[in-house]
Design a protein around this nucleic acid. Structure first.
Lengths: 217, 217
DNA sequence: CGTCAGTTTGATCGTTGTCAATCAAAGTGG
DNA sequence: CCACTTTGATTGACAACGATCAAACTGACG
């Protein structure tokens, strides 16, 4: 487990940045507790959320040695991370060769998630995008407590966050959420998400029910 | 170098799939020559291009051990790849620990590119998206021949491909290309891209000129 | 010469963005 | 405990960007 290599634990308050655009970033982080977003800011203030990181994620590895980060990372909740200095990686890998492969695998998983979102934003309607995002977050969250059958969760997001993740405005996100509520598919009020009709949600999200079932195991 | 671990070279003709959605994919590929796209297909036939892979890229590593691929890979030109069986990875890594780290780094680079495209598709106008895509492809292509100063290249894409990569319809891509031509920024006709005004292009793409310069080195 | 893939243009429609106003909830300091 | 502020949610009117539909055109290739 990557956790066993931790050199120093650190805590961040909700809203704090782990690193920002243009910073060098000499450490990588292993998220132990809480939610983190990776995001990009445009000059005019608009924002694109790139990734929602949950416990177990590795953050800050991305760019090549010593280069600047091309995106920022912000704690969405209070979080706990363990840090590994970039320089410590080669010795760790030398001692524990599987570490490198595991790291590659974790990043590949993030990459696959990014490809998913790309498809969602590029080719789906607003309704599909919002449904897809919420469903995926719900499934990933629930995967942390295997066997649980709760269809309700605390999602530490505003409607603006959902918009920034799906490439929509918060105004339109609000309309989409109203419609999904009207259709009795899900409710999202004040950071509480409740799935009313999982099957319909999977359908609206444009996902294969069998595929979704395979994630839940 | 990853190339030194190749076990067997293989060639594909333009249009052939290296692997498709839902296949197991027991090998990873190192692209030696040519262009490859990673793409996703929707039920209704629409397509999202996720990534353009150039020589040096690693393909097919993405999903976890033995799982199905969630996207396909298609040769855009005739290509040459070297294949490495998935099972060969642990022994390779044991013998050459840096290999794992280098693999992780390559995938992290793909991930960063995906994040770029996410921002582009999620928050930019059609004009910006097309400009961004063409500029990035041009820069990545030229990075293969350092020192070159040609502002023209063979881009093996149709306008439909550009649309599928940027989340637009080919009709609208056509209109955007017409405008870019009218503004004497670039020309793209029958798979030939010519940059007329690099500075304006960087501007339209919404990128930092200094950042772009740093890529060219 | 005919066919086919890809490009080009026009007309029209609709989804989503923009602008603006109101409302609800939560926090703050007197 | 109550003004006051702030952040986030909600709704309506309107505009615009890009999609859709349809048709013609071009170049490549047999």
């Amino acid at each position: 487990m990557i956790a066993s290599y931790k050199s120093a634990d650190r805590e961040f308050k909700a809203g704090q940045d782990l690193f920002s655009l243009g910073e060098p970033c000499d450490s990588i982080y292993n998220l132990l507790e809480g939610w983190v977003i990776l995001y990009n800011l445009l000059e005019d203030g608009r924002r694109q959320i790139l990734h929602f990181a949950l416990p177990g994620a590795v953050l800050g590895f991305h760019p090549g040695g010593g280069a600047m980060m091309t995106f920022g990372a912000q704690a969405l909740t209070d979080i706990v991370v363990s840090t590994i200095p970039r320089k410590a990686l080669p010795p760790i890998v030398k001692q524990q060769p599987e570490f490198g492969l595991r790291l590659a695998w974790l990043i590949a998983r993030d990459c696959t998630l990014a490809y998913d979102r790309l498809t969602s934003i590029g080719r789906h309607s607003a309704r599909e995008r919002v449904a897809h995002l919420l469903l995926k977050l719900f499934v990933r969250y629930r995967a942390q407590w295997p066997g649980s059958h709760i269809e309700e969760m605390h999602l530490p997001l505003t409607q603006e966050d959902i918009g920034d993740a799906t490439g929509l405005t918060f105004v339109h996100v609000n309309r989409v959420l109203r419609d999904l509520r009207k259709d009795r598919i899900l409710e999202f009020h004040y950071r509480r998400l409740r799935i009313l009709d999982p099957d319909k949600l999977v359908d609206v999200a444009g996902l294969d029910p069998q595929l979704v079932m395979s994630w839940i195991r």
